[in-house]
Amino acid sequence: MGTNDIDPDTGTAPRFVSRGFTGRARRPRSARLPPGQYDVGSGFPVLSAGPTPNTHLSRWDFTVQGQVDRVRHYSWADFRALPREPVEVDIHCVTSWSKFDTRWEGVSVDTLLGDVESGAEYALAFSDGGYTTNLPLADITGGRAWVVDTYDGAPLRPEHGGPARLLVPHLYFWKSAKWVRGLVLGEVEELGFWERFGYHRYGDPWRQQRYAGD
């Protein structure tokens, strides 16, 4: 097939077609599916870099620190007493699965930040087990991010990030840090765990920002 010829200058074909590949019989592609993603349906894959932590709720807290007027601490009881919101969103993993209409419940990051005074533009979320991920503050405020402890009406299971995880559905799901324990606000963007290993610093699924340089 002519379209498979390699361009000697670039080593790639302008319109490569995989010989014999038609894709499985597919429904019309949902407009809710970002490019390069597939609908995982009822499944919910688990991906993480280390063992699942086991933090007792009596030792759990959530901290807002870094460039702030005053550090904010929330115990589990404090956190559970905050105003809660149901959230129903589509999520998109960089490993190319997407899952539609996931139902969560938790506390808006706006609520957790509360009256924090800060000139920061970035946040570094940190988790039990040492995981971190960086986010522009504008992306986790204004009703765009939550700390959730409930999935599909039940307490969030540990392998999915329980007792609580960050939920930032408009970015690739590695930004939605499992086992989240707090945010460090700062003027400078400090890269997180996967971002230091070559993943994209922002991670917009609609622009396929999977890896650095995408």
């Binding site: 995982v40 349906g41 499944g43 919910f44 894959p45 688990v46 991906l47 993480s48 870099a49 280390g50 063992p51 699942t52 932590p53 490993t95 190319s96 699965w97 087990g129 040492g130 392998e159």
Partner: peptide, 28 residues
């Protein structure tokens, strides 16, 4: 991976020394 990682933790391995990579039937 869940079974093995939890088992290694219970045997006394340090969490920071355990690296995991997971796939599921729905993982890819």
């Amino acid at each position: 991976v869940e079974t093995v990682a939890a088992g290694m933790l219970s045997l006394g391995h340090d969490q920071s020394r355990i690296k995991t990579e997971r796939f599921g039937a729905t993982g890819g």
